[in-house]
Design a protein around this nucleic acid. Structure first.
Lengths: 204, 204
DNA sequence: AGGCGGTTGTGAATTATTTCACTATTATAA
DNA sequence: TTATAATAGTGAAATAATTCACAACCGCCT
């Protein structure tokens, strides 16, 4: 087992996890690296190498036990632990994220939602009470929320992010096209929808 | 000028483009690779190397002309050409994409939107006429739409994607967590919101 | 028990990407 | 005009990620 685990390996691990769930649903008990890799359109060597960073999960001659491998990957990714998240900005994108079923199954619990519109503050939205964005700091602190999804308009992004920092948020998933400047301690992932589209079109 | 351009270079090019627009707004006329790279938190060498795949755009001793560089990158990325896109599935995510201003400035023109809900079909939504998803094939063909944003529920994803293939779509930006299986000719980019979040939390 | 076909785990080789470090060029100041 | 400081462009070196290829092993069959 090596020391440095490639970032891409972590990304692929989730892909593996997803497909293992699907295989389980189908009743598949066992799968070889070759056929699993074929499905995922990666090389079998890559799949095995990725897993090898974390230990030995397969049986030579027989392949991998789907259920056991799913559990191992869940453990690696920390899906067994719950993480509290909040959604800040309840435009269409924020609402889309709120309604997204995928998060819960990965151990993310939406613990608070925020907006600045008087029409939303205090109301229940999809079962969640909407807080005033001004209350971000106390609410995040009291609930020990670790992760924030930032879906406010671009103009407000930096200011809101700064407040998240003060509230003690550990990681931000930033959906705005703004380059946030914050302390290095906060982990930021940028999801740039336009960039995805542009890359796609370049390779057309 | 080399033959093979790294995929990552293309991705960064859009990042450069975005920030150049911002610099222009600020009235910055000129910038050195060092300070530009500092802002973007990459190395200056990487910035220069990326640009070097496409030609020479800077002036030694003086740096880059912001306006000229923006135009050069626009040309490289094909932002000067318009691409027709359609949005299929008008849930919150589809609506969020429809309302997203960033696309237009990158040369993407939303040419049609589709849903299967009788409440939406035929109505105008944010100024766009909503078509029945059953009309996908003729509408895409008639309008020569090249790119589709797929934001339908998971269950419907594969079936709708298959229809996109028949309609002659060249590229799909897939927002569902489904692994689409289509002809290799169609370029597919997967945007997996849960995966982004999971990667973030692993590195916490 | 022994052999065989299939499959993992992994060091080594390969390929891709990033950084280094230096040259050539330009702007500017004396 | 010449010297000096700043900065782009780039081949070479370093690093990172992927693939290759094969030994070791497992399960099953006879």
């Amino acid at each position: 087992m090596k020391k440095i685990i490639p970032r891409k390996t972590i990304q692929r691990l989730l892909l593996y996890y997803r497909y293992l769930l699907f295989l389980l649903q189908q009743g598949t008990k066992n799968i070889s690296s070759t056929s699993f890799a074929d499905i995922l359109e990666i090389s079998a060597a890559q799949l095995r190498k990725d897993l090898s960073y974390f230990g030995k999960f397969g049986t030579q001659g027989a392949g991998y036990d789907v259920l056991a491998l799913r559990d191992e990957i869940a453990k690696i990714l920390g899906i067994d632990k719950e993480r509290k998240v909040c959604i800040v900005g309840l435009g269409n994108l924020g609402l889309a994220l709120l309604g997204y079923k995928g998060f819960a199954s990965l151990g993310f619990v939406v613990t608070a939602i925020f907006d600045n519109s008087p029409q939303k503050i205090g109301r229940k939205i999809k079962g969640f009470a909407c807080y005033d964005i001004k209350e971000l700091i106390p609410v995040v602190k009291n609930n020990k929320i670790e992760i924030a999804l930032l879906t406010v308009p671009s103009e407000a992004a930096q200011e809101v992010a700064r407040r998240m920092e003060d509230a003690g948020i550990k990681a931000i998933l930033n959906f705005t096209p703004v380059k946030l400047s914050l302390s290095k301690k906060i982990k930021i992932n940028n999801v740039d929808l336009a960039a995805e589209l542009k890359t796609l079109s370049y390779f057309l």
